[in-house]
Write a protein that binds this DNA or RNA. Structure first.
Length: 137
DNA sequence: GCCAACGTTGGC
DNA sequence: GCCAACGTTGGC
C-alpha cells in the first residue's frame, strides 16, 4: 500500500465532483515527475485530495481504481493517467497554512515543491494528515 | 552540454 | 493580478 497526495483546482475538478461521479480519469498530467508518480500507483492506494488555488486545503481521500494506462488526452508524448474513485471527505479540511506549520509535514512535496501535482506521502505523513483532519478510515 | 528565455503553476 | 519558482525548450 502506497500513499499519495494529488492536487486539483476545485473549479476544474473538485473532490465533491469526484464523489458525485464515483470515478474519474486522472489525466492531463504533463510533468515527468508527476507522471512517474502516477505510474507507481497501485490499485487500492490511498490519496489525499488537495484543492489548489481555491480553498488551499486537503479535503478528502481518494483511491486508485485503475492503474496507469496511456493518457488519451495527450496528442503527443509518453503520458499516462489512472482512474480515481472517492473514499470519503475529510472530517475537517486541513489548510495549507496548517500543513506548513506542522514540522512532521516539512518534507512533503507540497511544501518543498509546490508545483508538483502528484507526490508520494509516507505512511506517517498520511496518518498525520488524517489525524489533523479528525478523520478515521 | 550549457544556459538564457520562455511558459506554467500556484500562493499571496 | 502579480510574481516567484520551477520545468522545458532551443540556440550556440
Amino acid at each position: 500500500m502506497n500513499y499519495w497526495l494529488i492536487k486539483s483546482e476545485p473549479d476544474v475538478f473538485s473532490f465533491e465532483q469526484l464523489c458525485q461521479d464515483g470515478r474519474t480519469r486522472w489525466d492531463g498530467v504533463r510533468n515527468y515527475q508527476a507522471r512517474n508518480n502516477l505510474r507507481a500507483m497501485r490499485a487500492g492506494d490511498l490519496c489525499i485530495y488537495y484543492h489548489s488555488n481555491i480553498g488551499l486545503a486537503a479535503v478528502g481521500i481518494a483511491t486508485v481504481l485503475q492503474e496507469y494506462y496511456p493518457d488519451p488526452t495527450a496528442e503527443s508524448g509518453d503520458w499516462s493517467c489512472v482512474d480515481m474513485g472517492p473514499v470519503k471527505p475529510l472530517q475537517r479540511a486541513v489548510t495549507l497554512a496548517e500543513i506548513k506549520s506542522n514540522p512532521e509535514l516539512g518534507n512533503i512535496g507540497l511544501v518543498r515543491n509546490p508545483r508538483l501535482s502528484v507526490m508520494p506521502l509516507t505512511f506517517d505523513e498520511f496518518s498525520t494528515l488524517l489525524r489533523m483532519s479528525g478523520t478515521q478510515l
